[in-house]
Design a protein around this nucleic acid. Structure first.
Lengths: 200, 200
DNA sequence: AGGGCGCCTATCCTTTCGTATAGGGCACGG
DNA sequence: CCGTGCCCTATACGAAAGGATAGGCGCCCT
């Protein structure tokens, strides 16, 4: 079985690829952009399953899904995301995705899901689709990402403000909202969560 | 020549891998955990050289070295570290490592060292082995590790104090010293450094 | 045209963090 | 026995962080 993992976050991609390789998956390839994924599929033949990160250079929402489906000769393409909402998941399935994989999914489940989708079935985790699983509409804005980067570098609000030519209060505002969105209690935990999810 | 780079820090791993690839190394693989490294070696055959980060999930000190040596069919496995002391380097060589690579090593030297080790020679940088290279006596005490764990979980000093039946001031004291030892400016940066080095 | 959203700012206030200084206790090794 | 290192505590103070409330501006979309 040949699987292609397309994710711009190294850690995620490498880990997933390594895990699938460690299972009985014969060939696992990894790329970091949609263009690379499309090119690889066109050049080396279609894959039994393609896992596409929703937030990846070139994706433009679900436009990238359509391109990939063509490039993969209509064979299974699933969306992978750590942040996207349930609405996005539904839209993805609507648009012909073979499944939707939240990055919070347990590794074992991923393997099951991968086999399932490669076999032509549509996979969507139940509790995610029914709101119970991390509604996660908590997508960060550009500014919030800026603040988050600063936090992860151990900077103070004042420094972050200076770096981006803002007032300290404004930084505090963004920091407050982004920590809420990440489900963190304070900046430190937000930094750790960001690190875990590769948001930095 | 096939080389495997196992390091949980994305940037380091990718950089080393890219550099080796850019040289005349035929195949360079990268993984982020010891388990992935072992699995890959067992599945895809042994490597001419494996570079193992000393601070990486699953390593448990030099236990991981032994596992990897078995998984790689006794072929060269070297230890890679940005923090470990000279004592660790010596212990690693004692335990059968093919070499010890401080991350401060120049890129060119790395290439030389890699070829050297792949050829079966034992590599250990002279000035590192003789004390001049980063004594790194900045080793944390038990208590400081306790505090660090709390910090990484996003807890407040007060909570950490309660968890360990201490006064808040005491926690502050330890936090201050450990952040100094780690070269961090504040708890958040200390948490990130702890993560990067796998101290948690 | 109005509503929603992202964004910026302001004031005010409380809590937490970080640092400094100054002790006492305990264990270990020279 | 005394130094050294680790640990705990106390008081105190300035600096950050965090939270609440309120308002203004620009943009997009229906």
């Amino acid at each position: 079985m040949r699987i292609l993992v397309a994710d711009d976050h190294d850690l995620v991609r490498e880990t997933i690829a390594a895990f699938l390789s460690a299972a009985d998956i014969a060939e696992v390839r990894g790329v970091a952009t949609l263009d690379a994924a499309v090119a690889l599929a066109e050049e080396s033949g279609s894959f039994d399953l393609v896992l596409l990160d929703y937030d990846m250079p070139g994706m433009r929402g679900l436009e990238g899904l359509a391109r990939m489906r063509v490039a993969n000769n209509g064979r299974p393409v699933a969306i992978l995301s750590g942040t996207a909402t349930r609405e996005v998941a539904e839209a993805a399935l609507e648009a012909g995705a073979q499944g939707f994989i939240p990055k919070t999914l347990a590794a074992r489940s991923l393997l099951t899901a991968a086999r399932f989708m490669a076999a032509g079935e549509i996979y969507a985790p139940f509790d995610f689709m029914n709101g119970r699983g991390e509604t996660a509409d908590e997508t960060l804005t550009r500014r919030e990402y800026d603040m988050l980067r600063g936090i992860c570098e151990g900077k103070s609000n004042k420094e972050i403000a200076r770096d981006h030519d803002l007032q300290e209060v404004t930084v505090k505002l963004h920091v407050k909202t982004l920590t809420r969105k990440l489900g963190a209690r304070n900046r430190t935990q937000a930094a750790m969560i960001a690190r875990d999810r590769g948001l930095v």
